[in-house]
């Protein structure tokens, strides 16, 4: 997924730069955002110089070809930040109804959520419509681990968390563990409450754990 998205992104950037030849001397982030579809990537581009961008582009292509250390590329880093800060807001809007709907309905929804942009956004829409939540999350988490050595954060709940709770959780971990992508999953076994897996450590506030605690207490007494 990541190499395809990166290729699409590079394609969009080059296409944009062909149109806006004076971009690096007079950067216009809004125009870049309209083309690419991401504020963060557009902002990153507006801060680059022509030479640094070209060097970075070369590095990025080399990394993608050889699957080398991702952290050497600023473009890939900006893509990582895009996933953490921008994409997560869209991703959280994709509820279970979205994944139960048909491909056509999914595309309609995605056109509403990701309206502008060209190749990059199209590729993103494609992957969202194709992949499951877990697959997409896994791709992003692995990418971020390679880029920033980000910890894995998984949130389990007995039913799907509402948007506000998801936002609050993402904001919290955005401050506590920057550059981490919180994955949400449903586990009916929890019955109630919530459970977190943070880089291998478990914080269990579920009702199931309380019932287990009562069992253990009964065994001890």
């Amino acid at each position: 997924m990541i190499p395809d998205l990166t290729s699409a992104l590079i394609k969009d950037i080059i296409h944009f730069l062909k149109k806006e030849r004076t971009f690096f001397s007079a950067p216009n982030a809004e125009k870049a955002e309209q083309m690419i579809g991401s504020k963060i990537i557009a902002r990153h581009l507006s801060r680059e110089t022509e030479s640094s961008f070209v060097n970075d582009l070369g590095t990025t292509i080399k990394i993608l070809s050889n699957s080398e250390d991702f952290s050497g590329s600023n473009l890939l880093k900006s893509l990582g930040v895009f996933f953490v800060e921008e994409f997560s807001l869209i991703f959280d809007q994709l509820d279970k109804d979205f994944y139960r709907s048909t491909t056509t309905e999914r595309r309609k929804k995605l056109d509403q959520l990701l309206p502008h942009g060209a190749a990059f956004m199209a590729e993103l829409r494609y992957f969202i419509s194709l992949y499951s939540v877990q697959e997409m999350t896994e791709e992003i988490v692995v990418f971020l681990q390679a880029l920033f050595k980000s910890p894995r954060v998984l949130t389990q709940s007995p039913i799907e968390c509402d948007r506000e709770t998801k936002d609050a959780i993402r904001r919290h971990f955005g401050l506590k563990l920057p550059k981490s992508f919180v994955a949400f999953s449903i586990n009916a076994q929890l019955i109630g409450g919530i459970r977190f897996f943070i880089d291998g450590k478990v914080v269990d506030r579920s009702w199931f754990s309380r019932i287990q605690a009562i069992h253990r207490l009964k065994e001890l007494v």
């Binding site: 709770t165 506030r205 579920s206 009702w207």
Partner: peptide
């Protein structure tokens, strides 16, 4: 507890439990 959880718990209750657990955390 087992009687409560083995019977259908209203979704609102479960939803509130998630919110409460998050607040506690």
């Amino acid at each position: 507890v087992l009687h409560v959880v083995s019977n259908n718990i209203p979704q609102d209750v479960v939803k509130n439990s998630v919110a409460d657990a998050w607040k506690t955390y």
